[in-house]
Design a protein around this nucleic acid. Sequence first.
DNA 1: TATTGTTATACTCTATAACTATA
DNA 2: TATAGTTATAGAGTATAACAATA
Lengths: 150, 150
Amino acid sequence: MSTDPEIESSNLSQFLGFRLTRVKIRVHKVLLARLAPYELSSMEFSVLMLAGSNPGAYLRQLSSALDVSPPNLVSVVERMVRRNLLVRLPGTQDRRLQELHLTETGQALLKQAKADVERFENALEQSLTAVERRHIDSALRKLAAFQLDG
Amino acid sequence: MSTDPEIESSNLSQFLGFRLTRVKIRVHKVLLARLAPYELSSMEFSVLMLAGSNPGAYLRQLSSALDVSPPNLVSVVERMVRRNLLVRLPGTQDRRLQELHLTETGQALLKQAKADVERFENALEQSLTAVERRHIDSALRKLAAFQLDG
DNA sequence: TATTGTTATACTCTATAACTATA
DNA sequence: TATAGTTATAGAGTATAACAATA
């Protein structure tokens, strides 16, 4: 066994920014474990979700909705096309555009993965009290809009 | 200008895990902008903070406190030693250990950067109501302890 | 045999410049 | 000229195996 006395880190963990990072990492890891059976990254799951509720969306639209640059989204879409989850259909009017649609395989995988993620999300929310849920919602909304200026 | 109508993403943003990620990214970016003048990454700032309040701490201890693997922390410490912010003193009893201490330069930089981060943190917390602050605290604590099982 | 710090390596994410084909 | 998608590339961040020195 290791001689590993814990050091004092309360001055760091008092920071909301620090705790947010830690919580995000932990929650994200659990989510990834949930998605692992489907061989989906969280980004791929997000693309499945958005393509599912926005048939014919363009890569550029997913890019701005997900806050990922187009170059970085291309390889994600590419892999999903190769797995036959997505198809790229040439735009009818503007031939620069490609409409993204879920295949039947993609729809089936989305249905399964989404059910698992929803179970995970329910467990996550059930770990909080009703009043905590109410306030973390508004708090996160405000923090997401936080700007550098003060 | 771009023809970029927003797509429907409420089914995704209803997920607490998704919103946590977005908030973390946004808050982290603002923090990085605050640290940029000092040429500090958030990891380097964390090391400064921990080394400041734990003089003589070992790399292994910082590693477990920060949840970074020892190999990945070595290069961070290395860079800070090169910048004369940290020194590695050979352990007196166990010669495998190296005590990490802030130099005077490191202490001065910590003082400045910490003041800026604290201003940032205050602004962050002031953007929330008192009741939101109270509940996000306990909520984040519970979420950080969330385990995969349900 | 186990542990500290280290080297090497690889893989994911992210960021940016520049290309092509269309408009 | 501007935009959509793409290619190429570089930089973080992270994860793992293995090594030397020491216990």
